[in-house]
Amino acid sequence: MSHIAVKNLAVHYDGYCALKDIEFEAGKGEFVAIVGKSGSGKTTFLHALAHFIPFSGEIAVPKNVGMVFQHYAVFPWFTASENIGFGLGDKSGNERVQIVREHLKLAELEDKKDKYPAELSGGQVQRIAIARSLAHNPEVLLMDEPYGALDAYTRDKMQQWLLDVWATHKKTVVYVTHDIEEAVFLADRVLVLNHHKFTKEFMVPFARPRHEEVKFTPEFSRLRKEIFESINSFEG
């Protein structure tokens, strides 16, 4: 039984076609990455999944969806713990405090709970954003290039952190990135988006838990190259 099912999806902006003929499925607990060039429609796809924008076709997603953005990921006027606690108002005081504490720990920011985002590093801010989404216990987590603005070293560390978090929470994840290495390292399956439609699908065979070392294996390089070629050779 698929957790997300998309049939015949198309998105148009003022006459411009941003997505067309999109068929997509993701199983419960699956980690799917979507790669493609800028402007191919990756972000638009996530926005449609979250029902932020009008679309035609069918999208079936669970009700409780979380999203992590690359920019404006957290509220700069709230501290780390206030950000994580945002929107937990329906919970009782104690429960809320407990959830915030747990997710601060998850984000490894217990000692920075009263800091504002501008006082934290880019990686710490993205960890707050991810922890904030998880605090609502979403069934599906949509991630839009969450590490796009981070330097390579921080990104490597954050990828490992995300895999650890994912291993414990087992959310269904749709992860958009332009970084093929990141997609292969994180995902169970990588989809290539070229000119507004999915053109290719790659299964990622590496066992979990995965660690950095897998990136240096020949299988990893080969898969990376295949995906790279499927993006670059496409003439649409």
């Binding site: 979250a50 509220f75 108002g89 609502h136």
Partner: peptide, 20 residues
């Protein structure tokens, strides 16, 4: 992104107005 993000986290438009 602030408004979309907030909408996923709370259903209260009063809260979004006041806190976002």
């Amino acid at each position: 992104a602030f408004l979309w993000g907030a909408k996923l986290l709370t259903a209260s438009s009063m809260k979004i107005f006041r806190e976002v």
